[in-house]
Design a protein around this nucleic acid. Sequence first.
DNA 1: GAGACCTTTTT
DNA 2: AAAAGGTCT
Length: 462
Amino acid sequence: MTKALMWFRYDLRLHDNLALLAASDFDEVIPVFIYEKTNSATTASDWWLHYSLEALAESIKSRGGSLIIRQGNPQLIIEELMNTFQIDALFFNRSLLSKDVLLEQELVEKYSTKTTYVKCFDDRLLFYHHKIVTKNQTPYKVFSSYWKIAKLQYITFPQNKNSSFSKDTFDSLALDDLKLIDNHHWMKKFGAYWTPGEQQAIQKFEDFIEQDLASYNKLRDFPGKQGTSDMSPYLAWGNISIRSMWYRVKRFIDEQPEHADAADSYLRQLAWRDFAYEQLAQFPDLDRVPVRKAFQHYPWAFDEDLFTAWKTGQTGYPLVDAGMRELWETGIIHNRVRMVVASFLVKHLRIPWQYGYDWFKETLVDFDTANNAMGWQWVTGSGIDAAPYFRVFNPTGQAQKFDSGALYIKRWIPELKDVPPDVIHSPQKYVAAHQISYPQPIVDHATARKLALEGFEHIKKH
DNA sequence: GAGACCTTTTT
DNA sequence: AAAAGGTCT
């Protein structure tokens, strides 16, 4: 009787999971999840984790096993489990977070013995990045060049195999012991918008393919329309396999070649996630330190009240406020609006991007270190292949362009529900004219833009 | 080393 | 039409 320990991490699913696939060659699979965080503040991402674990535990149970849930230092817990049960092999997928690199290496080195096999898999991304390099063998710094090469790579075909989960009972915490959800908190609303878990992920993606993929490139930039797939939180916790998404889209292209352009633009978006992890690997502190060092000298002007206005959707710029309220209500922000609110924080308010990163970390159900770190640095202009620093999004211009009928704005700002779109798009006028309880713009666009650009002039010397 | 190119723009 | 600098071939 051989036993494999399967350590679940950011791969909370049974289908097309490389580590689990390897474990399934053993007579018995013992599945464990280890929650590492020890502080008590719970985040939107924890909310997603809770229900993902619930779904995973249920799937494992229906196959006769039981998911072991633990909290603490993974190395100690794995050591304990391996010593307690006669484990023949340990399998897990790489997390790709900088903090885990050493741990993963150590586990493979320390626990591999003549009788125990330990292996760590690359399961989270589409591409093997050591293969995607420039002619000088260096990692790409420009996405378009990266994508040109990446799209030609072979991607491992999805594979599934039924695992025999161990029927023994193990010492485990109850899911509720992790205290991942707080139903008195803002997150109690999320259930109205989301159902985490593997089955939901697969079904939701199938619905997107059938209903929305063909018009993806036309609609994805319009937050008032149903154009995006909203798969990001499922990907963040690995409720779905990225490879299965890739091949599902490829199948769609085969079946409906007339929609190949739309489908390609979706695949390109998936590749951005890979590119973000590539950057995190190159710059382990991508989430805190600007890649372009000159940005350490930017004359930031942190103001607590302005920051609070941004967080609570009270800036007086309707598209910014709609985005921040959508975030608070649902745990997600439409991609187009995400860029606008981020640009507003960094350039109009001149608040360091790390504050925005931290707020997103707390409130996004799709929080992902690499995507967010890259995104904030892109908006700031401090990143690799970033938006030029002089590009300051005009929040009302963006609203006119991408939410001309103000459908999205009205969805999230009830105060404006009876205001005509053209009035919404001229923020200086409508409050006085319509006697609405909605704030005046907290900063003047032209002035803020000028100050932001002056700030960038200042760091050029460095 | 020249030239093409650059996710998401602005006034 | 201009802002403007780096990356890649």
